[in-house]
Simulated assay, not measured.
Amino acid sequence: RKWYGSSVKILDNNTIDLPTLGERPNVLAGIVCKVSDSETLRLGNTTGSAGRVLEFENPYMTMSLLRSLWHRIGGFSWYTTELFHRLGDPRFDVGDVVTYVSDSGESYDIPITNIGFNFDGGLSADISAVGLSVEEQL
């Protein structure tokens, strides 16, 4: 399942150094929203046994809104990733999802969870997508 905004950003080996990708995808299996101290809404598998669980707090969340959100992002998968973007596109931001296309044509969705820009006469960026380590995925 794709989790994109209005435009897809494609990365390939022409603009980045070879990325470090996790061996297995992380899968969003559940979602938990704490509405108040006495109310918590849950959808999907929220035990963490089938994949990752997104947890957040929002006092305005309703079950209807949570279902709508789950419909958009449930089952999203990504690879734990670290990469160096030689062109350092300033349009990238935390929360964006970029797609890495390898030389063999395989594509990997990468949600940007950390980004650091470097400027030393040219712009570059260190980008990562957090997730489970190889040991945790086994």
Rank of each mutant, 00 (worst) to 15 (best):
E23T: 12
M61N: 09
L54I: 06
L66I: 07
L123C: 09
L83Q: 02
W78F: 07
I110H: 01
D93T: 10
T81G: 06
W78H: 03
I127R: 05
R52E: 14
F76H: 07
V98S: 05
M63F: 10
S102W: 10
F92Q: 08
D37W: 08
H85L: 11
M63L: 12
N45T: 09
N26A: 14
D93I: 08
G44M: 04
P90A: 09
D37H: 13
T40C: 10
T20F: 10
V130R: 07
S7C: 07
G105A: 09
I73T: 11
T62S: 15
G30A: 12
I73L: 14
N13G: 08
L21G: 06
S64F: 03
V35G: 04
N58W: 02
F117R: 10
E55V: 13
N45Q: 08
L69I: 15
N45E: 08
G51Y: 12
L87M: 01
G44Q: 01
D89G: 03
L66Y: 04
T46I: 10
P90I: 08
D17S: 10
E82T: 12
G95F: 13
S107K: 13
G88S: 01
T81V: 02
D93K: 15
V130T: 13
G121P: 05
L83R: 05
R24K: 05
L69K: 13
N114T: 15
W78I: 06
R67K: 14
D93F: 09
G122C: 06
V130G: 11
G131Y: 02
N118Y: 14
D89R: 11
D93C: 10
G75W: 01
S77K: 07
